[in-house]
Design a binder for these strands. Structure first.
Length: 270
DNA sequence: CGTATGCAAATAAGG
DNA sequence: GCCTTATTTGCATAC
């Protein structure tokens, strides 16, 4: 009867048009100039540096950190990331110097080259600390940057391999930089703290089982946009949260739209 | 075991 | 409060 797992705090919010992540900034797909819609979903991907993993576990909890309060943000592009403001770069200090340096700093943040370098450095130092991607993701929640919760191993992995959108990379960079900073500080100080359990939780993802999924598809075939009441009814019947069902229908509509669109212009159709 | 990844939930933002 | 569109993530599971 209520949104039980609605505990997530406002998270980041970069958004706006996706930007391709390419060191060379290729402007693929120019088309007519307005039809880049949900089709070509996945953006960036100029993937992998090198692999090379390592074993090393050891957990260490990073936690609180003074809130930097970096400030000015003159978007070099368009993004409103909050996370971006809570940076605490390795060499703190340069932040509040002068407007020009602040802007300069920001430009660096947006530079694909810099991001790439950071990602690599990050991975290398993470491994040196003997921490896994999963550990990092979990630790981010203990680091108490406003609006920053834990992340999955997947996301950390994607950050390191640059398989996230450019904007997403830019938004996550300061957060990971802050974690790295704190992790190294604590490693050196020999203390692994864990104060606070206020750990902002990571986004949860419901897994809808195959049988339920089949039922939903059947309902969808009959009525792609059920009324709120119908949705509640279906949710009850499948023993799923109403919101889960509502979102499923929304996503299903998006998916259908994508399929229809791509099927339409695929140069194969005959 | 730790890391990639495919598929698709959950969210953000404007209506 | 729900819809759409665009995007960010996470579960599951393959390497």
């Amino acid at each position: 009867m209520d949104v039980a797992d609605k505990a997530t705090l406002p998270r980041y919010r970069m958004t706006t048009t996706a930007e391709l992540y390419t060191p060379n900034m290729e402007q693929t797909l120019s088309m007519d100039g307005k039809i880049m819609t949900p089709l070509m979903k996945h953006e960036n991907i100029y993937s992998q540096p090198g692999i090379g993993h390592h074993g090393g576990s050891m957990l260490d909890e990073i936690s609180s950190m003074p809130i930097p309060a970096v400030a000015p943000d003159h978007a070099c592009s368009m993004l409103t990331s909050h996370a971006q403001m809570y940076a605490s770069y390795s060499q703190h200090s340069s932040v509040m110097c002068s407007p020009s340096s602040a802007i300069h700093q920001h430009e660096l943040d947006c530079d694909p080259r810099e991001l790439e370098a950071f990602a690599e450095r990050f991975k290398q130092r993470r491994i040196k600390l003997g921490v896994t991607q999963a550990d990092v993701g979990k630790a981010l929640g203990n680091l108490k940057l406003p609006g920053v919760g834990s992340l999955s191993q997947s996301t950390i992995c994607r950050f390191e391999s640059l398989t996230l959108s450019h904007n997403n990379m830019i938004a996550l960079k300061p957060v990971l930089a802050a974690w790295l900073d704190e992790a190294e500080r604590q490693a050196h100080a020999h203390h692994a703290e864990v104060f606070n359990t206020v750990t902002d939780k990571k986004r949860k993802r419901t897994s809808i089982a195959a049988p339920e999924k089949r039922s939903l598809e059947a309902y969808f075939a009959v009525q792609p946009r059920p009324s709120g009441e119908k949705i509640a009814q279906i949710a009850d019947k499948l023993d799923l949260k109403k919101n889960v069902v509502r979102v499923w229908f929304c996503n299903q509509r998006q998916k259908q739209k994508r399929m229809k669109f791509s099927a339409n212009m695929m140069p194969h159709h005959h």
